[in-house]
Simulated assay, not measured.
Amino acid sequence: MRLQNKVIIVTGSCTGIGKAIAERCVAEGAQVVIHGLEPEWGEQVVAKLGTQNAVLHIEDLTLPEAPQRLVEIAIQTFGRLDALVNNAALVISSNIQTTDEAFLRKVLEVNTVAPLALIKAALPQLSQNRGSVLNIGSVNAWSGEPNLLAYSISKGALMTMTRNLGDTLHRENNVRVNQINPGWVLTENEAQRKHEQGLPEDWYKAIPNVFAPAGRILWPSEIAAAAIYWLADESGPISGQVVDLEQHPFLGRNPPKDASTLST
């Protein structure tokens, strides 16, 4: 039980990676605050985990007082707060033609500003309990796909924030801040997005080798397994680190000769 007696907020945990992280946290002995925008899905997660282990809060994180309310729910329900997982994100396609200033601000508000606001709101409790923050980024933070411009910008900013606060908050507040950058993960929303883009319902069963050497893309449970290390005391004093979780070397990769003939 690597997270015994810890209380953890996991944003965006009604589905996908966040849901998998919350489930794994409870399996490791933690109590969790489930958060998202989908009441029915969130209620299903809480029912599965048990009300003694989980509480649900539905709210848009970009609202001014939302971060503080989320922290207060953790304290009122479970008496403390030990860790924060900033997983909630707006995953949306855009390129240079479709990304105007208003669109970029909207994506940044959800993917970068809200995580910072949550860290600020949680900091007193996290500092008191020598807690930790785990930001869920994306391998797109390094440059991103052509049709993920605004999303990639926001995740690049999140990565810089992780390194900055991972140093500052560790020294000044006893709070560790780290980040994992998942690659291509088969979440419910990703499966639906690709289907809406014209791919068949079972598109994930035939991924070209250039994108998935293992023959499949990642599962949310595999990201959750990695998340536990950063939330547990066993990661010790490590802070300010960003780890890419993909099945091939994302930077400096030598693409196969036939890669140009393949499409996602």
Results as ranks from 00 to 15, higher is better:
residue 4 Q to M: 12
residue 13 S to N: 07
residue 21 I to N: 06
residue 32 V to G: 09
residue 33 V to T: 02
residue 34 I to Q: 02
residue 36 G to N: 01
residue 45 V to P: 10
residue 46 V to R: 07
residue 56 L to S: 04
residue 62 T to L: 00
residue 68 Q to R: 14
residue 70 L to Q: 05
residue 71 V to W: 03
residue 71 V to N: 04
residue 72 E to F: 05
residue 73 I to T: 15
residue 75 I to P: 06
residue 78 F to V: 00
residue 79 G to T: 06
residue 85 V to M: 01
residue 89 A to I: 01
residue 92 I to W: 10
residue 96 I to G: 10
residue 98 T to A: 04
residue 98 T to I: 00
residue 105 R to F: 02
residue 111 N to L: 01
residue 112 T to H: 13
residue 115 P to V: 02
residue 115 P to Q: 04
residue 121 A to L: 01
residue 124 P to W: 03
residue 124 P to L: 02
residue 125 Q to P: 10
residue 128 Q to V: 04
residue 130 R to E: 07
residue 136 I to M: 06
residue 142 W to D: 04
residue 154 S to T: 00
residue 160 T to L: 11
residue 164 N to P: 04
residue 166 G to R: 01
residue 169 L to G: 05
residue 174 N to C: 13
residue 176 R to V: 01
residue 184 W to A: 12
residue 187 T to A: 11
residue 189 N to L: 13
residue 200 P to W: 04
residue 206 A to P: 10
residue 208 P to R: 10
residue 216 R to K: 13
residue 219 W to Q: 15
residue 229 Y to W: 11
residue 231 L to A: 08
residue 233 D to G: 14
residue 234 E to R: 13
residue 241 Q to T: 11
residue 242 V to W: 06
residue 243 V to L: 15
residue 249 P to C: 07
residue 259 A to K: 12
residue 259 A to T: 11
residue 263 S to L: 11
